[in-house]
Write a protein that binds this DNA or RNA. Structure first.
Lengths: 142, 142
DNA sequence: GTAAGGCTTGACGCCGACGTCAAGGCAACA
DNA sequence: TGTTGCCTTGACGTCGGCGTCAAGCCTTAC
């Protein structure tokens, strides 16, 4: 099969396949026209790469899985190097999720505080002294 | 104060300040030498930007906060446009955290499955028929 | 004959938030 | 007088994973 067919079957583009080849991740044989030639095993490798990419693995992190498959193992994660990547990715995800949750709480707190302040200002306008400067920028207050 | 001092006081770099100015986020006056000149209010604006950046807001998202402060409000989030950004960021964070948690579970599942398979293969080597292909690539098995 | 479609390599574009280098100006200090 | 240190503008580099031309070859269909 040629590059266009492989790309279509994997739901990706020819540009992506050439890029993978340029990175040494998915080398291709050539037919007598000089066209890249792939088989079902290449499709399998490509699917492995795409699955991991969907998980947010970057290209280098997929390499152990691809090499594992190419070495004849039944699954891309049948080799210890792949398990190492899994575990490192789990740690990264846990750290990232933790950071994001902390940020989320910070932002939620800021929002709550700002809304309280706004409501307090709203009450102030019902009181002698009158209101403070209105926002003249950005906010559509219809 | 000049650009170097402001950068140092805000814990950032002169390049960053020039970049913010190029984006129209933090314009500077000029002294008679043509040097950028800042005051304490600019430091306040800059701190607002940096805080939001630390939260993962991109530059454009900080703009309403900066304009709010510049309009004379006591806080960057004293304007409705800023609250809109807060809420949108919360939604984005929730979505992202949800996605990452789903990915985390997927990866954890894959790791568990792969480890079970490895252990099953280990047991197989204690049994007639002998073991299957070993990994010859990548993994340091000491 | 020629147009269409697939393939080739090469190379520049993109995004965001700057880093880094170049060439030069101004001021203070030894 | 020269050196140091701050400032100026301009412009190219970075990172990842491709997108998007450009120019040209090969084959098949009309």
């Amino acid at each position: 099969m040629r590059i266009g067919e492989l790309a279509a079957r994997a739901g990706t583009t020819t540009r992506t396949l050439r890029y993978y080849e340029s990175r040494g991740l998915l080398p291709a044989r050539r037919d007598d026209q000089g066209y890249r030639s792939y088989d079902e095993r290449d499709l399998r490798l490509l699917q492995q790469i795409r699955t991991l990419q969907d998980f947010g693995f970057d290209l280098e992190e997929t390499r152990p899985f691809v090499e594992c498959l190419r070495a004849g193992h039944p699954e891309g994660d049948s080799c210890p190097a792949s398990l190492v990547v899994y575990r490192r990715k789990l740690d990264e995800l846990d750290a990232l999720i933790g950071d994001l949750r902390a940020v989320r709480e910070q932002v939620a707190g800021q929002l709550a505080r700002a809304e309280r302040a706004r409501d307090a200002l709203g009450a102030e306008s019902l009181v002698p002294g009158g209101p403070e400067p209105r926002c003249e920028l950005g906010g559509q207050e219809r």
